[in-house]
């Protein structure tokens, strides 16, 4: 069983909303100073899903991260969780790609690695969150795609994937190889042990450039983008919270109930 997991490094999405700042002219988010970037939440759970499969079936996990050289940090994080190999895809030509460009580059690297049974991505990135890379990647590779997975089982080269619906779940059966996108409902990711962290720190993380994966630069030409962002903004909201007075919890509760009686 060989699983390839695509992971992204993102600015920490859990900073308080008040600390979240944008540069509307550059159409960029200003990373909060002093808060290190992290592995995107859903991608971390995709690594967890791969680790659970490895716990059960042995085999191998390869992680891929398209980003800056700093993305070696998230690759190392995945390795400390249980991944075996990892690569960072970094090239000037890989900057500011849309979902199609990202899927194209990941697809090229995956073809170079080869010999896989399952490709996992997070359901969407915690930053721009376009939510399309996994599906476009599956189309590029001509593979079945199962989105929003919350449990993945493999038996006799067949996948049995539980996926989340608004009102419950469904079970999908698909042949391998296939692509699946993982949702947070799969459960919390494991905490790496100290030894694993140390070994991951020593691991060589190769950086692949466009030429290493045979990427055709004309595919990544900015004139070919499918979607462009023309504006970003933070909606302004007026604070209108009325604090309920009261010296004791009972007084506060009485005051709140009297405010709400009209409503319900």
């Amino acid at each position: 069983m060989h699983t390839i997991v695509c992971i992204k490094q993102v600015p920490d999405p859990e900073i308080p909303p008040a600390k979240f700042k944008i540069d509307p002219v550059a159409k960029k988010v200003i990373p909060p100073p002093g808060v290190p970037p992290v592995i995107s939440v859903y991608d971390e759970r995709a690594v967890e899903a791969a680790c659970r499969l490895k716990d059960k079936h042995k085999g191998k996990i390869t992680v891929l991260s398209l980003g800056s050289e700093k993305a070696t940090d998230v690759v190392r994080h995945a390795i400390s969780m249980g991944a075996d190999e990892g690569y960072v895809l970094q090239d000037e030509a890989f900057e500011n790609l849309d979902s199609f460009g990202t899927a194209y580059v990941l697809g090229k690297a995956i073809q170079k690695i080869g010999g896989y049974d399952l490709i996992l991505c997070g359901r969407q990135a915690a930053d721009w969150g376009a939510g399309q890379v996994g599906s476009i990647l599956a189309e590029i590779l001509g593979l079945p795609i199962i989105t929003l997975a919350c449990d993945i089982q493999v038996e006799d080269k067949k996948l049995k994937i539980k996926r989340i619906l608004k009102d419950g779940f469904e079970i999908v059966e698909a042949p391998t190889p296939a692509v699946a996108t993982v949702s947070s409902e799969i459960g919390l990711p494991r905490l790496p042990a100290g030894v694993a962290l140390m070994l991951a720190r020593r691991k060589q993380i190769p950086i692949w450039k466009a030429k290493d994966i045979g990427a055709d630069l004309s595919e990544l030409d900015p004139s070919k983008v499918h979607t462009e962002i023309t504006e970003i903004f933070i909606p302004t909201r007026e604070r209108k919270c009325e604090m309920i007075p009261g010296a004791t919890p009972a007084e506060v509760a009485t005051n709140l109930v009297s405010k709400l009686v009209k409503l319900i």
Binding site: V29, A126, W128, H226, T227, T230, I234
Partner: peptide, 15 residues
């Protein structure tokens, strides 16, 4: 975008 902390306007000029 960014978990609802901001919003983006998106267009598709060519596709």
């Amino acid at each position: 975008i960014f978990g609802g902390n901001a919003y983006a306007k998106v267009v598709s000029r060519f596709a």
